[in-house]
Design a protein around this nucleic acid. Structure first.
Lengths: 189, 189
DNA sequence: CCGCAAAACCTAATGGTAGTAGGATAGAAA
DNA sequence: TTTCTATCCTACTACCATTAGGTTTTGCGG
């Protein structure tokens, strides 16, 4: 039989596609084996176990998100940077629901340190630079923004806004306006 | 053999306990059958399938959360109401991580309409009453608050704040201060 | 008190996912 | 050409979910 040429890389890559197409819950070693027309047991030479694969997909998702965040923040400041960063989150959630879910897969501390998560936080800090916050307040602001981005995207994706007027877009806009105002008038404690 | 006296009620009840003790992922029909010392197949007389049970737990979680929200908002207004409502969310997430996760289990439209989710939204609206927002802005404010509460709780629970100073409590405080200010100075479009 | 019907619970089977142990082999290097 | 090793396989165990259809308990009407 001809060898397919499996690789951890290829598995994670295919896992990303699969998660995005069918949802993170469908991301299973068995499904991946079917896609490569290979027996399930064969995958264990390249991947420690199911969670290992999912962690790989999660790390890739975080990296992709961080890439976009870096790009969005570059050359912008103030509200423009804030909005660009926000759109990155919401669009990513909308276009890659599987990866967006994967990005919240629990990672070990070692996996987390070098991940895109840290880079994402740095991009947020950079986006805030224009607001001139005190050093000590920057973390709080990052957490506020991160919470809103994540929460809103999740609720929208989960359909929580589906059965109440008006369009989520408007709420998103108003939310960003409000956050911008908050950051501009941030009072140091 | 003596009959255990299974009921959909008792199953959902036990499911809530189990989810809270061991996590929502452990909530499985097989585990429940073991707890009641009953064969797995026996559960299907009381519950349509695994998702049906999880939906039951989810609805109960939403109800519980809505109960606490109603209680927190009653007799309070303005920032006091806002903070009380916020604490309900964060404490609920901290004390009942399993139920908190369950509350985000995807529900069908029919299940969702009469659920605690709607009541929760009403409690939020009530909490906002003191800020005197225009009718059209209230939804946006509710969505802003809901997003922050959810996002922050998730990030904290997921350990995203664990490896950066300072304590999440302070960020939470500052975030609520910021939201309070935002609501007070909300400008109608 | 008795019989019977519905409810409660069971046995038995199927099929899907995860994971381990150990064997066969393709393909490259010696 | 021979040998070696990564690659992939067979064969198994152990979970969970679900359905079909059988048996026993229980309580209610007679």
């Amino acid at each position: 039989m001809p060898r397919v040429g499996l690789t951890r890389e290829r598995l994670v890559e295919a896992g990303c596609d699969l998660a995005d197409r069918e949802g993170f819950a469908v991301l299973t070693l068995a499904e991946l084996a079917r896609m490569f027309e290979v027996k399930l047991a064969s995958l264990y030479s390249h991947v420690r176990n199911s969670d290992d694969l999912k962690a790989g997909v999660a790390l890739r998702a975080l990296d992709l998100l961080a890439d976009r965040a870096d790009e969005a923040v570059a050359g912008r400041a103030g509200k423009e940077a804030l909005v660009a960063l926000a759109e990155v989150h919401r669009h990513f959630a909308g276009e890659h629901p599987g990866l967006f879910e994967a990005a919240r897969f629990p990672l070990s501390a070692e996996q987390a340190v070098g991940s895109g998560g840290a880079r994402l936080a740095r991009a947020m800090l950079a986006a805030l630079r224009g607001y001139g916050l005190a050093e000590a307040d920057q973390v709080h602001a990052v957490r506020l923004l991160g919470s809103f981005f994540l929460g809103f995207s999740l609720l929208e994706l989960g359909g929580s806004f589906a059965h109440s007027q008006p369009e989520p877009d408007l709420s998103w806009q108003r939310g960003l306006d409000a956050l911008d105002l908050t950051l501009k008038s941030w009072t140091t404690t």
